[in-house]
Design a protein around this nucleic acid. Structure first.
Length: 236
DNA sequence: CCAACGTACTCGCCTAGGGC
DNA sequence: GCCCTAGGCGAGTACGTTGG
């Protein structure tokens, strides 16, 4: 009998390409996941996964089963949501991911409004980096995530919420007027302080700097911050 | 007729160990 | 190191029996 559990395990295996890591993501041991994948293959009568030394690769049929299986999983989540909330808008549990460079600035402003307008909504928030949020949205661990566009990712619907001005933080004694537009060539990139690897704002800043060099930009200082407020303090 | 109880079975998991 | 198999455990379920 094909089960939703098996489809969830297969989806994790497709994402991680590794039985052990997929099992860890599903909070089970590797043999438990392996047995469910094996059962699924026997039920469907096809080989879904090529077990090669050092890597696990989905077969062509396997990829299609994953694609259709994720549709089934999404529909099952939708069915549960509908039954629990009987079609009401923004009621019940909503898991929302937010990137760290947005969360502390945006959430305090929107959470009170959400609570006022949708008192039946039980919001569960998760703050982490873009890559993890995308994986969680794809796996269904998150209902939605607030990220910086563009994503360059297939299989995820996006909705633009707002434009955010890209600002350069400089020490208070910097002679340039606050309203001045700055081009990449006006920035001393050897003294640039950025967020650490994995933050999309870091990548965006480096991409902006690259427009002055005509090629990839390198992070300036050896220091990399884990939060935007640390960056601002270091600049000050 | 129905609820309560006991037993057997199934399912999903784990750990241990083996093969590649 | 990675995955599979074997054996065992616990929880849940199906089903038969019993008593009110």
């Amino acid at each position: 009998m094909l089960t939703l559990r098996q489809l969830r395990y297969l989806s994790a295996l497709a994402r991680h390409g590794h039985f052990g890591r997929a099992a860890e993501a599903c909070a089970v041991t590797q043999p438990a996941l392996s047995m469910q994948i094996g059962d699924l293959e026997r039920t469907l009568g096809v080989k879904l996964v090529e077990r090669r030394p050092g890597e696990v690769v989905l077969t062509e049929v396997g990829r299609e089963v994953v694609r259709r299986g994720e549709d089934v999983l999404a529909m099952s989540r939708d069915l549960v949501d509908f039954a629990r909330h009987r079609g009401g808008v923004l009621t019940g549990r909503l898991t929302l991911g937010v990137i760290p460079s947005l969360a502390p600035y945006l959430l305090p402003r929107i959470l009170p409004v959400l609570q006022r307008q949708f008192p039946e909504l039980r919001l569960e928030l998760r703050e982490t980096q873009t890559r993890q949020l995308l994986d969680d949205v794809k796996s269904g661990a998150l209902d939605a995530a607030m990220l910086a566009l563009p994503l360059g990712e297939t299989g995820i619907d996006t909705l633009k919420l707002f434009d955010d001005t890209f600002l350069l933080a400089v020490p208070a004694d910097d002679p340039r007027p606050a309203e001045q537009r700055i081009s990449a060539s006006q920035i001393d990139q050897s003294r640039l302080i950025l967020l650490e690897d994995g933050h999309c704002l870091r990548d965006q800043a480096l991409a902006f700097c690259a427009t002055a060099r005509g090629g990839p930009a390198a992070a300036g200082t050896a220091f990399a911050a884990s939060s935007l407020s640390t960056v601002i303090q270091m600049v000050a």
